[in-house]
Nucleic acid binder design. Structure first.
Lengths: 125, 125, 125, 125
DNA sequence: GTGGTCTAGACCACG
DNA sequence: GTGGTCTAGACCACA
């Protein structure tokens, strides 16, 4: 899986790494039990600092996406370990600002839901 | 309109102010032509620094939500001035990470769209 | 002559008044010897503060565009009284920032000069 | 590149900084991809406050002249990112007052265009 | 060490 | 009294 960093972006590099790995898991590019590259390896591959990768991996572990194995390194968890139905309670406060802005800028509900569906469909397979 | 700041939140205070005002506009709590409180007034009301409010107002102005009126102070723009259909192109990159995480955590598309609809319906009126 | 104030503009009201009167003189809408409305009158006409009009008139007088007569009030000077060939030395520093920005944004010299000519031609008649 | 601030000028310090950097870009004194000094460095160099420089940089970023690179700091954008042909529509209202004043003070169109050309020619190289 | 955020207090231009 | 500007000093997130 290829991770692409935008150094100009205002989202921190470690967040970009976290997001892309989660997206990789969601789209089955990364499958359960698969090992991620070592901190050192990934850092070298994408040309960023080791500490940055480390931080990304820590967050992924904290949020239940990966587990740190002594031998196998960082491995992708089973989906069942990620399940966290209470996450739905956090969704409104995350997307409310986006929707408010979209609404003011003339994006209709239908258009917005359509965008969400498009993204969802890239994950279902 | 009451603005509530969470000082513990990791989202900057000025962003919280911006978001809540946009939500106020979307929900018609703030109507076109209405004056917002002065920077000093709002700062005092919510117990933050004047400059923080100023930054929030500057962003709102930059993004077309308000304008500075030489007599009325900061006033809410007409919706037509906020319209910016190209914003829809930015939506996917904003919500993709959220949806990926939601997907992994077992939130179905239907559940997610439902949450979005609920928020949208608070704005349509 | 009709003066139009944009209360949303970031240029001060008194500057807008000054500019429009100068443009009126340049375009011969206001001719030499003509009286401008009284401070009180103009303020009422365009719905602004008397002090603001006063400031505008003071600047126009300082820069040689009008003279304050005891009886006739504020009258437009003869062009010969405005002539100030040393003004050309101030032009570069005024327009350099504009041209630099225009240049970076892809406006060619020809396009820029053409815009200037168009404005000049509204004055020559 | 040397930035010179006139503390007596009525144009805000941050605007002076912005203008001089744009002129530096236009004249190729600052080239694409080059890093600008850090906010603290530049502030110290020209003897002003860090926040003033910060504001200048924010404006330059907003207007597409520079971007924040997570490693290189503030870097000059490619010209293609600054291109904004709609800027030409803003030019008349910016220069109309200048030309009106110049006209009244006896500057001919030829003289004025000549001044513009001189400035343009310092950028074309 | 970088930019980003926040606070605090001061002065000014404007109306 | 309004927003705009500037200064000063502090802490934090990031890399």
């Amino acid at each position: 899986m290829i991770i692409k960093i935008d150094l100009q972006s205002e989202t921190p590099i470690y967040t970009q790494v976290v997001n892309q790995i989660i997206e990789g898991i969601a789209s089955k590019t990364l499958v359960e039990g698969e090992s991620l590259p070592s901190v050192r390896q990934l850092a070298e591959d994408i040309g960023i600092n080791m500490h940055t990768v480390n931080k990304a991996y820590s967050i992924l572990r904290r949020d239940g996406f990966v587990t740190i194995h002594r031998r196998k390194g960082v491995v992708v968890n089973e989906f069942s370990n990620m399940y966290n139905s209470s996450f739905i309670k956090e969704i409104p406060e995350i997307i409310k600002p986006v929707i408010a802005e979209a609404f003011c800028k003339g994006i209709t509900e239908k258009e917005f839901l359509n965008e969400c569906s498009k993204i969802y469909s890239t994950f279902k397979t």
